[in-house]
């Protein structure tokens, strides 16, 4: 009885494997369009390998807020058209979907790099802002 059950299970498994190799390999969905179809609703966008490597240094922000005191755009329109650089950098410590919520605030950045010069942990704030600008369409 036990041997029969084992035999039945093995036949089932073999059938599944044959099905997988025969059909699913040819019908698998690939490419950017399929990725976007699946994940655009959750605001997840594809990352390049280089960006993935930089991502760990993006999340070095400790939210000390020194960059805020240097930012001239923040002084002019705080929370209306521009969020503080610290907030944008700090959102990277959370998750990727948070990036897209910053898009409205990044457009006003003049990329003067004043914030980068005072950062104690050396977060590449300017390249973060460029990164968000590049993915602004998502």
């Amino acid at each position: 009885m036990k041997g029969l059950k084992l035999c039945y299970a093995k036949i089932n498994l073999a059938f599944a494997v044959i099905l997988h190799f025969a059909f699913k390999k040819w019908f698998r969905r690939r490419g950017l369009t399929h990725f976007l179809k699946a994940y655009q609703k959750d605001r997840v966008f594809p990352l390049l390998g280089e960006e993935r490597q930089k991502f760990s240094s993006y999340s070095n922000c400790i939210f000390c807020g020194l960059c805020v005191s240097q930012c001239e755009v923040t002084d002019l329109n705080f929370y209306q058209k521009f969020l503080t650089p610290a907030n944008i950098a700090f959102s990277y410590t959370k998750s990727l979907p948070e990036v897209s919520s910053n898009i409205d605030f990044v457009a006003h950045c003049s990329s003067c790099r004043a914030c980068e010069k005072v950062c104690p942990t050396g977060v590449p704030l300017n390249s973060i802002l460029q990164f968000v600008k590049a993915h602004a369409s998502f």
Partner: peptide, 9 residues
């Protein structure tokens, strides 16, 4: 120096 440090805090 790479930036301001904890003295500014």
């Amino acid at each position: 120096r790479k930036g301001w440090g904890a003295s500014a805090l």
